[in-house]
Nucleic acid binder design. Structure first.
Length: 337
DNA sequence: AACGTTCACAACCGCGTGCGG
DNA sequence: GCCGCACGCGGTTGTGAACGT
């Protein structure tokens, strides 16, 4: 409704904060808590509006803020959550411990957005710019959209709950907040909870953006994306796993190795549109493995056939689980004031 | 060394929403 | 139910630093 007139007062300071201003604000909040932001500047002896004080505190002075470079893990989390939530920076921040919404927003606008664009990915849709969706992808996208709507509601309820919880003195009950479901919150508010989540659909192709992201990271750090193991044991790097499953007996393993090597050393990464690369890679692998299974066992319903199935399914499941786990994890330790 | 351009980030602005009177 | 205050959020701007010419 009405807009706060607090910043319209004449004589209030604007622009960068001085160390003295910071010190006054810190000292006041440490002693009294922030209370009403509107009343705070006068009480703290600051020539600032309450809004400015709140922003300075939440984005800069608060002691539980982590500053500095974002890790790969944090970047991935931001990308995943942005794909799901869009520009809902506060909701994203609630799932990134010790980072503020403003910092995440700035980092997205100055770094991640540009990098995704460079990779040929639309930063708003998280889809390849030239990628035309087929019917199955449209269905997947619809499923994702349905889940995103429900997750939006859930995240909002959780964020509200966290905010409310921080207003109260910590109680043993509070330690349970992490697992307190948003559904019960909605019920408490007299709202019918949405129907239970359908089993997660396979992710649409656009979600391979993270795999591509990991690929670019791996490239930049000379870290292999895929590893193979001819000795029966499996190795796992960045969630993608390839096992021998008898390839040692066949020259197909060397073909598999070649594909993986080519992929690792960046042959595929030379492709401008990174999203094109993974499906191609998987397709190559699929052809090879399917061919191999027929050669060894005569049909696809066998160990090697399911090897590819496992590989693809694992990849999809890992990816999807990452996404769901991310939004399921408790934000209670997050910097929501 | 001087100037112009680009980048990064802190801070501001204005809108939407919740809540109490 | 209406109104207005207070707050939070997301988009945008301003400014200093870094870099290039």
């Amino acid at each position: 409704m009405g807009r706060s007139p607090c910043c319209e007062k004449v004589g209030l300071k604007k622009g960068p904060w001085t160390p003295e201003d910071d010190q006054k604000l810190l000292a006041y909040i440490e002693e009294h808590g922030h209370g009403s932001w509107r009343a705070l500047p006068v009480k703290a002896g600051l020539q600032r509006c309450g809004k400015s004080c709140r922003l300075r505190w939440t984005n800069y002075l608060r002691p539980d803020i982590k500053r500095g470079k974002f890790s790969l893990q944090e970047e991935q989390t931001i990308i995943q959550l942005h794909a799901l939530l869009g520009n809902r920076w506060s909701a994203i921040a609630a799932h990134l411990s010790k980072r503020t919404d403003n910092e995440i927003k700035n980092y997205w606008n100055t770094h991640l957005k540009k990098r995704l664009t460079k990779m040929g990915i639309d930063p708003m849709t998280h889809k390849p710019k030239s990628h035309a969706l087929g019917p199955s992808q449209l269905k997947d996208a619809a499923n994702l959209s349905h889940m995103a709507q429900w997750e939006n509601a859930r995240l909002e309820a959780e964020a509200r709950l966290v905010r409310e919880s921080k207003l109260h003195v910590s109680t043993p009950f509070q330690t349970q907040l992490g697992s307190f479901s948003a559904s019960s919150q909605l019920v408490n508010k007299g709202l019918a909870p949405p129907p239970p989540l359908p089993p997660p659909p396979p992710p649409p192709l656009c979600l391979d953006v993270l795999t591509a992201w990991q690929g670019s990271f791996a490239k930049s750090t000379s870290m292999p994306i895929l590893q193979y193991n001819n000795g029966g044991a499996c190795e796992e790097t960045m969630g993608i796993r390839v096992e021998d499953h008898g390839f040692g007996k066949s020259n197909k393993f060397s073909e598999l190795k070649e594909i993986i090597d080519a992929y690792n050393i960046g042959e595929a990464l030379k492709v401008e549109n990174a999203n094109v690369l993974l499906p191609n890679f998987v397709e190559d692998l699929s052809d090879l493995l399917f061919e191999n299974s027929n050669e060894l066992y005569g049909n696809s319903n066998n160990v090697v056939g399911s090897c590819y199935g496992d590989f693809e399914e694992n990849k999809i499941n890992n990816h999807w689980n990452n996404m769901v786990n991310l939004v399921n994890c408790s934000p209670s330790g997050s910097p929501v004031f």
